[in-house]
Design a protein around this nucleic acid. Structure first.
Lengths: 212, 212
DNA sequence: CCATTATGAGACGAGATAGTTCCGAAACTC
DNA sequence: GAGTTTCGGAACTATCTCGTCTCATAATGG
C-alpha cells in the first residue's frame, strides 16, 4: 500500500548515511496513508477518462481532494506516479480449477466482459501502451503487469494438457497469445464489447486447434 | 494527395455563395503541393518517435521545414492534421492469390515482419489507439483504416473456404481476429519482433482449427 | 509592372502546466 | 506545551504550446 517510489523524507540535505538505513521516522504528524490510495485511484480514473493527455498533477490533486504539495512530497513527478498507479491496478484475478480447460478459460476471460473491467481496460491499456512506446520504464512495468495477468490462463492450459485435453506438443504461450487476439482487436480499435458469446467462440476455436 | 480537410481559401469574410461552388482559384502564388506531403510525413515521424505527447505544431513545422502559418493555412488544428496523416499512411498492401490459404496468409502477414513497418506500426498504432479512446473522430478513421488492412487476409480466407481448404461453417471474421492476436500482443506490450517463425506458427495453428 | 496570394521564419499574447513555496490548522512525539 | 511534520488549499514563477500576426520574399495572373 505504501508508495514504492516515495521520496526520501523532506530532509533536503540529508546525511548520506541516512539513506542507508530506512529508519522509521517518528517525529511530527505522520503521513496519511489514505492519501496514497486516493491519489493512485485518481490517476487511474483520469487515465481512463481522458487518457495521458488529460493527466495533470492539478487534476489528480483536485480529484483526490489532496493538495499538490502532498503529491510532490511523495512522488518526484508524473512518471513515477503513473508507474505506481499501474502497479496498484493489480486486482484479484479468478484462477478457477474446474477440471475442464474450456470452463477454466471461460471463467477467466469472462472477467474481461464485466462492464467495470471493460471500460477501464478499454481506455487504460491503450493509453499505457502508447506511453510505453516512448517510456522504457513504463514499458518494463507494463510488460510485467500484463504478463502476470496471463498466468491464470497459462496455468489452465497446462492443467488441460496434463489431463490430456490438449495435445502435448502444443505451444501454450502461442495459444495464450492467440486467445487474446479478438479481445485486443476490439478493445483497441473498435471499442465493441467483449461479450460472453465472443469469448466462448474464440475459446472453442482455439481449443479445436490443439485438441489431441 | 490534396488535403481532404484543407481550409477554405483565406478569404476570411467570403461570400456565402462562394462556398457552394468549389471554384479553382487562380490569383496569386499557388500553394506548394509538396508542403502537404512534407507536413503529413513529419506528423507520422513525430508520432512514431515521440508519440502524441511530442506532437506539437512547432515540431511539425520545424521538421517539415515549413512555417507554422503554412500549416494553419491548410488545417484548422492538430486533430484534422492527425486524421489526414493517418489517411496518408495507406501503403500498398500485397494481396497475393497463390492458390493456398497458408501461402497467402504468410505473404500477407510477412509485411508486418518487415523492419520498416515494424518500427512504424509498433509506435504509431498504440499512439493512435490511445488517442482514439478519447477522440471519436479519430476512432472512426482509425477503425476504417484498420478494417481496410484486414481485407486481404479476409479474402484469402474466403478463397480458401471456396476451395475447400477451410470448413464452410468457419467464422472467418473471428479467424481473422484470432490471427492478429500474437502480433498485437507483441507490438503493444513487449515490442518483441514479429518474425516469420511466429507468423508461420500462428497461421498453422489457426488453420488447424478450421480444417475441414 | 502590379495586384494578389503563398512561403519560411519567427515574434507575440493568451492560456495551460509543472513544480515550489507559503499559509493556518492538525497530528504526532517528547 | 514545545517542536516537528503533514495536511488541503492556493499563490507564484517558469516554461511550454497554441494560434495569430508580421515581415521580406517568391510565384503567379493580368
Amino acid at each position: 500500500m505504501t508508495a514504492g517510489t516515495a521520496r526520501a523524507p523532506a530532509t533536503k540535505q540529508a546525511d548520506p548515511l541516512d539513506d542507508i538505513g530506512a529508519e522509521p521516522r517518528k517525529l511530527g504528524r505522520p503521513r496519511d496513508a489514505r492519501a496514497d490510495a486516493a491519489i493512485l485511484e485518481a490517476v487511474v480514473e483520469i487515465l481512463v477518462e481522458d487518457g495521458f493527455g488529460g493527466l495533470t498533477i492539478d487534476a489528480v490533486a483536485h480529484r483526490a481532494k489532496v493538495g499538490k504539495a502532498t503529491i510532490y512530497r511523495r512522488w518526484d513527478g508524473k512518471e513515477r506516479l503513473v508507474l505506481d498507479a499501474l502497479a496498484a491496478t493489480k486486482e484479484d484475478m479468478v484462477a478457477p480449477d474446474t477440471g475442464s480447460v474450456r470452463a477454466d478459460l471461460v471463467a477467466i476471460y469472462a472477467q474481461m466482459g464485466e462492464p467495470v473491467n471493460q471500460q477501464t481496460v478499454v481506455r487504460l491499456l491503450p493509453a499505457l501502451a502508447a506511453e510505453a512506446a516512448v517510456n522504457p520504464d513504463l514499458a518494463e512495468r507494463l510488460r510485467s503487469v500484463v504478463a502476470e495477468r496471463r498466468i491464470p490462463s497459462r496455468r489452465a492450459l497446462e492443467r488441460g494438457r496434463d489431463r490430456g485435453e490438449i495435445r502435448p506438443d502444443a505451444d501454450l504461450d502461442l495459444v495464450n497469445d492467440l486467445l487474446t487476439g479478438p479481445f485486443m482487436y476490439r478493445l483497441f480499435f473498435t471499442g465493441a464489447p467483449v461479450d460472453s458469446d465472443l469469448i466462448a467462440r474464440s475459446i472453442d476455436l482455439v481449443l479445436r486447434a490443439i485438441a489431441p
